[in-house]
Nucleic acid binder design. Structure first.
Lengths: 207, 207
DNA sequence: GCAATTTATGAGTAAATACTCACATATGCT
DNA sequence: AGCATATGTGAGTATTTACTCATAAATTGC
């Protein structure tokens, strides 16, 4: 049961400390990537980052705060991509808009699949902070807005389902070592369009 | 990085010890359910099981062995359900066969969603044992055999995708606190049939 | 009842791990 | 240069945790 302290301790003011801050996050990400949550401890992170344990604790009060910050950053990036995709898709036809959303999801999750998986699981363990929750809702909302604009019934539920289904497929592909985003995209497409009950943009038979 | 010891230390011989064995597993499951992998430690498990730590280590050489046994049992049950569903669906029409498989998945994952999620993640961290891997392959194979019997292209890949997509949707529903299996089933159905590019058994508009 | 075997106990140990603090060094400002 | 502030250090501490072992109790077979 993690403690309440979840936010960074202090923001770096000099450029040198900003570098340290990032060093910690990147080291943490690499450890999660290789050893998962089981290998995730502050001593290991400091060592891998090449800094002292004291420096780490200057910026992060608990190890959960490191996880939370990783989640926040990754989510923010995804949200940005999703929002631009959604905005462009608001007026266009539905199929290309969906494609853009799918591509954003694949790009987000397939580059470092183990990291994505660990963060995903870690989030389900962390106490819910308003900020992370808001980010999540915004992402779903971005998807839902596209669906709503094209008259899909219950867009909020559909958005949640589509995000989940897509995440599941990409995660599985990542575990299997797939790297061909195009093939994966096609398969996700079929499921998504099928769920929505709409004909696909370009017809394609089973891969 | 877990140690190689992954199998139970010894099998219980008397009925009393079989009860202890099960007590450990159920306590472990409850801890995973409530606190996730972060709360999963042998002292806590023994305490919750109401037995001594020494007794726990009579049957499980490491805590990873407990996880592995939980995974094995759960997988075995799922495999059983999947195989019967697959066998019945071999000769019947595709749609009802798929429905049976989906129902098995939902029953498996929606009753204790937090447990399922933790075990899923734990497995990605554990060293791969032949047995667990075989079970996984058998499950995918059961699905694939149904698909193959009905002429679906690349049944192995499709089976993997469908399992992943379904798992993702059920997991998300579980996190959200959904308990209505019927509604969920309908939505999963749409995605699955859409992926397969086949018309659905019963037409249903978006929920 | 009695020995052999199985099962249960829990104090104890060694190691891992989260986190602190007194101090050192670097940087910015005037 | 000199002061204030920001940043970096790592030995050290308290706690958690995986796991052992000597011993006790229960069960089985006779």
């Amino acid at each position: 049961m993690p403690k309440p302290a979840i936010n960074p301790r202090k923001r770096p003011r000099q450029t040198r400390s900003a570098a340290t801050f990032d060093l910690v996050l990147e080291a943490a990400a690499r450890i999660l990537e290789r050893g998962g949550l089981a290998a995730f401890n502050t001593n290991a992170i400091a060592e891998r980052a090449g800094i002292s344990i004291g420096s780490l604790y200057q910026y992060f009060p608990t190890k959960e705060a490191i996880l939370a910050e990783l989640i926040r950053r990754k989510r923010n990036i995804l949200l940005g991509h999703m929002q631009t995709a959604a905005q462009q898709g608001q007026s266009a036809r539905l199929a290309p808009a969906i494609d853009a959303l799918i591509d954003a999801g694949i790009a987000h999750q397939l580059s470092r699949p183990n990291l994505a998986r660990s963060l995903e699981y870690a989030e389900s363990l962390l106490p819910i902070t308003t900020e992370t929750e808001t980010l999540k809702q915004q992402i779903v909302h971005a998807i839902a807005s596209v669906l709503a604009a094209h008259g899909i019934a219950d867009p909020a539920l559909a958005a949640r389902d589509l995000a989940a289904l897509t995440r599941g497929m990409i995660d599985s592909a990542g575990l299997f070592g797939e790297t061909d985003a195009a093939s994966l995209r096609n398969r996700v497409r079929r499921a998504v369009f099928g769920y929505l009950g709409i004909p696909q943009g370009k017809r394609r038979q089973a891969v």
